[in-house]
Structures are given as C-alpha cells and as structure tokens.
C-alpha cells in the first residue's frame, strides 16, 4: 500500500464527487416524485433512455449540450408515460415502474442497434476548471475541476431544497404527498401535481443517464446504467426525502466506491468482492446508525380518487 499521498486522496475525493452526480440527479428527481405520492421504480429504464438519447444526439449533432437537452426531453416523455399509467389510470405503481424499466432498457438497446449499430465513441463534456477556485491547493482540483453536469447536480441540491420548502409549488407537492384529500379540498390539483413531479423527476433521471454517456463514459453500450437507477431510488430513502440527506447519501456511496477502486488498484490481498460490496455495506450501516425520525410521504404509493379514501 505504498504511494498513499495527498495526490491519491485528491483522486479519490474528486472521483467520488464526479461519480455522485448521476446518483444525485436521479435521486433528486425521484425525491420530487415520491414527495407527491408516487414511487417510480422505472428510474433505471429512464436513465437508459436518457443515456442513449444523450449519446445519440451528441453523436449526430456534434454537441454534448444538444445531447443533454435531448435527454431531458426523452426523460419528460418517459415521465409522462409513467404519469398516464400510474396517475390517470391509477395502475399499481410497482408494476408500472418495472414495466417502464423493461421498456426503457429494451427501447434504448433497440434504438442503438437500429440507428448506431456498433460501439462508437463520442467527445463528451470536458472538465471546466473554475478560474481562481480551481487553484486552491487540495480543494481546488477536488471541487472545481469537474464537468458542467457535476456542478449542475450539486447546484440542484439547494435549488431543490428551496423549491420544496419555500415555494407554493413545493408546498403543494408536499401536501399532495401527505394529505391528498385535504389538498384537493383546498383546490390543488392532485393529479396535476403528480404529473408535474413525475415529469420533472424523470427529466432528472434522463439527465442522470446522459451524464453516464456524455459526461463520463463517452460511449454507449448495453446496460450502461448497471443498476445505478435502483441505487438512486434507495438513496431517496437514505436521505429521507430531503435534498441534503440525498446528497449525503450519494456522496457517501460514491466516495466509498472510489475509495474501494483505489484500494484495489494499489494492491490488495483479499477477495476483491469485499471491496466491491463496500459502498453497499457502508450505506446500510450509515443509515442504521444514524438517528432521526423516520417518516415518509403518507400517501406514497396510493393512487388518488376524489371522493374515496386510501
């Protein structure tokens, strides 16, 4: 284990921050969705669609920004589909989510095969060093030499918190998720809010997918998300539906991941599986020892029908 020095630590931390971005984006989206009373298990599928479309548009359009924009659009469409099925048609949210996941996985793979055909690489987002700040010793390269999507993901944390706690819309979202009947009585459209949240949440999931292709791997291949959508859903529970908590969870998970990669690379002498599962174990462990009241949006998972209860 020679070679542990500040440079290595900078690499671990900077990588951890970069890798937190997709989790953060998708989990913040899922947070809005769940706050309004719908749980969307289809995040993984939406991410795959976002990943493919982001990649594809970048490939043919030549600009990662176009790709990112397209991933937002396709995310919104997937969210709309989920909303039609689970809000208008009041379908079981668990099944709808898994259906959306299968559709997203299949459709992204299919479109890739039809319109790209072979593994191809793209020029994705480049890191943007923020002047002055990136020169700060130690912290500079960790925090201020990332790509634009990473900054956006972290900026979304305070923005989400502000929207959720300080705006009327945020209040409505929270009301719809906990007391839909009361919200309805007060003239808030329960269905409308849920539609909006599903669409916004899915746009963020699409963006998270685009991060993987345009902001990280610079290519697309089958199953690119590899379970990251499901982990994002889990992180919403880790963060107890609060943006800051989710950020903590995403950072913890990805830091643990980047740490275990480095430990493996620097030479270990035990089954690597122990290293690979480290982030998962740490996340469970951290939640287990953390204190705080556990609650959730009371109407989570329950379709709303005016005039009926539950």
């Amino acid at each position: 284990m020679e070679g542990i020095n500040s440079e290595i630590i900078i690499v671990i931390l900077a990588t951890g921050i970069r890798l937190a971005a997709p989790f953060l984006l998708a989990a913040l989206g899922e947070m809005f969705t769940q706050r309004s009373g719908v749980y969307n298990l289809g995040v993984e599928g939406i991410m795959m669609m976002g990943a493919f479309v982001g990649f594809f548009i970048t490939l043919i359009g030549g600009s990662p920004l176009l790709g990112i924009a397209a991933s937002l659009v396709v995310g919104a469409l997937m969210g709309l589909l989920m909303a039609v099925v689970s809000v208008t048609f009041k379908a079981e949210q668990g099944i709808s989510g898994i259906g959306l996941y299968m559709l997203g996985w299949g459709l992204s793979g299919l479109l890739f095969r039809l319109y790209v055909g072979a593994i191809t690489t793209i020029d994705g987002l480049k890191p943007v060093a923020i002047p002055l700040l990136s020169d700060i010793p130690f912290l500079g390269p960790i925090l201020f030499n990332q790509n634009g999507l990473v900054y956006s993901a972290f900026l979304l944390v305070p923005i989400s918190a502000f929207i959720l706690y300080k705006t009327t819309w945020g209040l409505n979202v929270r009301a719809v998720g906990t007391m839909p009947e009361a919200a309805d009585t007060l003239g808030v459209s329960v269905q409308g809010i849920r539609y909006q949240c599903l669409i916004v949440g899915s746009m963020l999931a699409g963006l998270a997918g685009a991060f993987l292709t345009v902001g990280h791997a610079n290519m697309y291949a089958d199953n690119i998300t590899a379970g990251r959508g499901f982990i994002s859903i889990a992180l919403v529970y880790f963060g107890r539906w609060s943006p800051w908590g989710i950020m903590l969870g995403a950072l913890l998970f990805s830091m643990a991941d980047s740490f275990q990669s480095m430990v493996q690379v620097l030479g270990i002498n035990f089954p690597y599986e122990l290293a690979v599962v480290l982030p998962y174990v740490i996340t469970i462990f951290a939640l287990a020892i953390s204190f705080g009241r556990v609650w959730g949006p009371a109407a989570l998972g329950k379709p709303f029908q005016r005039g009926t209860r539950g």
């Binding site: 070679g3 290595i8 990588t15 791997a217 590899a226 990669s261 690379v265 599962v277």
Partner: peptide, 21 residues
C-alpha cells in the same frame, strides 16, 4: 475487478483510477 461483466461505466472508472495511480 468491477465485479460485473458489463459495467462499462465502472470499468471506465477503474481504468481512470489505475491511470491516476
């Protein structure tokens, strides 16, 4: 090792870690 056969994001990340080390 990534612990998976098809995690291209994870593989890319391990490669970057190798390079930085």
């Amino acid at each position: 090792y990534t612990g998976s056969f098809n995690d291209i994001v994870g593989a890319g990340n391990l490669a970057k870690t190798h390079i930085s080390a």
